[in-house]
């Protein structure tokens, strides 16, 4: 298969970037999208040009490193799945494909298609944890968790932290990411002692990092490779209201 590619090139954070046209030929339909970029990079190298910088690591959809917007969709057209799980057979032979980074103000571009997502780490650092000192844990079966809650917590915890939710959101909001962690921990009894402070601090840092606001377009859940449901955003709103209310009551 042959493809025309329009790929975002940007030397560093400060310099302006632009779309540059490339062509790849004789690509097997069983090639993954990232392997197609590997091939393009080999071609560029042979031609004495600088390869395109893009991020990936596990290449099986779990580490959350890869982060490309393909034809205007975060992770490309094959939802649900990370862009490393996208295969060229999903495209028409001869197609023109546009590749851009995830564009969110809070994810500055490092180079070409590589972005800096440390803002997501800082949201978790604000309170996305249960303070359980190693050695202090009680016997695992001493606290039961209703299966339904455990399953729901697992659904939320499946987030791979790629940032596609914010990238796809018309407002650049990271609510799906934050809500997944808040919900995961609020659904488990172990997470209850820090329930209120956690949601208040995480939301505060999320806002301070400059992410946009949720207007319930549900674009985030449509592109989420881990299929995190936007109903966790409703849960976040609920948790936030509850925490504010309890705080105002002096609890």
């Amino acid at each position: 298969m042959n493809f025309q590619l329009r790929i975002w090139r940007q030397p560093n954070r400060k310099s302006p970037g632009k779309l540059v046209d490339y062509e790849v030929r004789d690509i097997s339909p069983n090639t993954s999208f990232l392997e197609m970029l590997d091939i393009l990079n080999e071609n560029l190298l042979r031609a004495g040009k600088e390869p395109i910088a893009f991020d990936s690591d596990c290449r099986e959809g779990i580490c959350g490193t890869c982060s490309l917007t393909v034809n205007g969709e975060a992770h490309g057209p094959d939802h649900p799945g990370a862009v490393c799980e996208l295969y060229m057979r999903k495209f028409r032979d001869g197609a023109t494909i546009t590749v851009e980074p995830f564009r969110v103000g809070s994810f500055p571009i490092v180079k070409d298609l590589v972005i800096d997502r440390s803002a997501l780490d800082r949201i978790v650092q604000a309170g996305g944890f249960i303070s359980a000192r190693a050695g202090s844990a009680p016997e695992a079966n001493s606290v039961t968790v209703p299966k339904h809650h455990a399953d729901l917590a697992m659904e939320a915890a499946a987030c791979i932290g790629c940032g596609a939710c914010a990238a796809a959101c018309p407002n650049g909001s990271a609510m799906l990411f934050t809500s997944a962690k808040v919900s995961h921990l609020a659904l488990l009894p172990q997470g209850h002692p820090e329930r209120e402070s956690r949601v208040l601090k995480m939301v505060q840092v999320m806002d301070a990092e400059g992410f946009g606001n949720c207007t319930n377009t549900y674009e985030c859940e449509a592109v989420c490779p881990a299929e995190i449901s936007a109903s966790f955003i409703a849960k976040l709103n609920r948790e936030y209201a509850r925490a504010r209310f309890r705080r105002s009551m002096g609890e």
């Binding site: 779309l19 909001s173 549900y218 449509a222």
Partner: peptide, 21 residues
């Protein structure tokens, strides 16, 4: 929300977000 995305996409497709939303 505008500030949250200072640089717009050159190409943007919506999967689920409706025109109204």
């Amino acid at each position: 929300n505008r500030r949250a995305r200072p640089e717009a996409y050159m190409d943007k497709q919506y999967v689920k977000a409706t025109f109204a939303s």
